[in-house]
């Protein structure tokens, strides 16, 4: 049953690439601030919903995508300015509650700005399945994978080669020292929210032809993205992608060979086991964080 195995694997990679893209957003904010943003899923949803509604209104797709990314970035920066920065000195738990509040708020807003219906977007390059040794692969999956890959490369370049990126890493490592070195840490925090919002929007848009979108789609994607980021090791972009793929493939293999009812549970059991043996995730290291 090689073709069946291959099909499970493709299904897992498709789902995993979606989780990976969602997980990357968590990683960036964590890198800059050690904040976990539980409204990351809402960035994904806002990006997708904005793009979909613009396309429905007749805006050409590339322009709609660009506008959607900008809108989501604006939401991300606003969230940072209005909610996260004023509470910068609060405890991690308090910040978690603030971002959870933000996610409820944004979801509620989305339900009023748009509606409670599901929306679709056409695949970027058609929906003719590609046949691979008896298994089928949808072209959109390649888009999702390619986007994830591109994002990692861009992030690696950004964090290692640009001043802004280095400032971000420095801030994450030691905010006080970074400030003393003349880095504007407030700006870095704002930048990280803008960047991860943009990333969320990109992810949300690329996956919509597969998953559809609705005002409450951010919950599940945020949860799985968080799982992926933690499994891979927080703050590690490559880890988030690996984590996402592992969760996705574990789910698909569990559905294929064990029980589809328990596929999500299997994924969480794997995460728990990994954490027991590697308390900082697969690729997370204490102290020096690099992408």
């Amino acid at each position: 049953m090689l073709s069946a195995f291959l099909q499970f694997l493709i299904s897992g990679v498709t789902v995993g690439a979606i989780y990976a893209l969602c997980g990357l957003g968590f990683s960036i904010i964590y890198n800059a601030s050690h904040v976990i943003n539980f409204a990351q899923g809402e960035f994904i949803m806002i990006g997708a919903m904005t793009a979909v509604s613009l396309v429905e209104a007749g805006v050409p797709m590339p322009l709609a995508i660009l506008l959607a990314i900008l809108v989501t970035m604006a939401v991300g920066v606003l969230l940072e300015k209005l909610a996260v920065e004023p509470a910068r000195k609060a405890s991690v738990t308090t910040l978690i509650i603030i971002t959870i509040g933000a996610s409820i708020f944004l979801r509620g807003l989305a339900q009023e700005v748009w509606d409670k219906n599901f929306h679709k977007m056409d695949p970027f390059s058609g929906d003719t399945p590609i046949n691979l040794f008896g298994a089928v692969l949808m072209p959109q999956t390649l888009w999702v994978l390619g986007t994830a890959l591109l994002v990692i490369l861009l992030l690696a370049w950004f964090f290692n080669r640009t001043l802004e990126g280095k400032a971000m890493l420095a801030t994450s490592f030691n905010p006080l020292a970074a400030q003393l070195m003349g880095i504007n840490t407030k700006r870095v925090l704002m930048l990280s929210f803008g960047l991860s919002a943009a990333l969320g929007a990109v992810g949300g848009i690329v996956i919509t032809p597969i998953t559809f979108t609705a005002y409450d789609n951010g919950i599940m994607l945020g949860l799985k993205g968080f799982s992926a980021a933690v499994l891979g090791g927080l703050g590690n972009g490559f880890g988030a992608v690996a984590g996402g793929l592992i969760v996705g493939i574990a789910e698909a293999m569990a559905a294929g060979y064990l029980s589809s009812a328990y596929k999500d549970a299997v994924a969480f059991v794997i995460i728990l086991l990994v954490l027991v043996f590697l308390p900082n995730g697969l690729f997370g290291r204490k102290g020096t964080e690099r992408v």
């Binding site: 049953m1 069946a4 099909q7 499970f8 493709i10 299904s11 897992g12 498709t14 789902v15 979606i18 089928v136 996956i207 597969i210 998953t211 789609n217 919950i219 599940m220 789910e251 698909a252 293999m253 559905a255 294929g256 589809s260 009812a261 596929k263 999500d264």
Partner: peptide, 20 residues
């Protein structure tokens, strides 16, 4: 007899089992 979760983005694994 297969199941899936309400927000699952893809169910090809379950359908492959059914197909086979």
């Amino acid at each position: 007899d297969e199941t899936y979760a309400p927000k699952d983005p893809d169910v090809t694994a379950q359908l492959t089992k059914i197909k086979n």
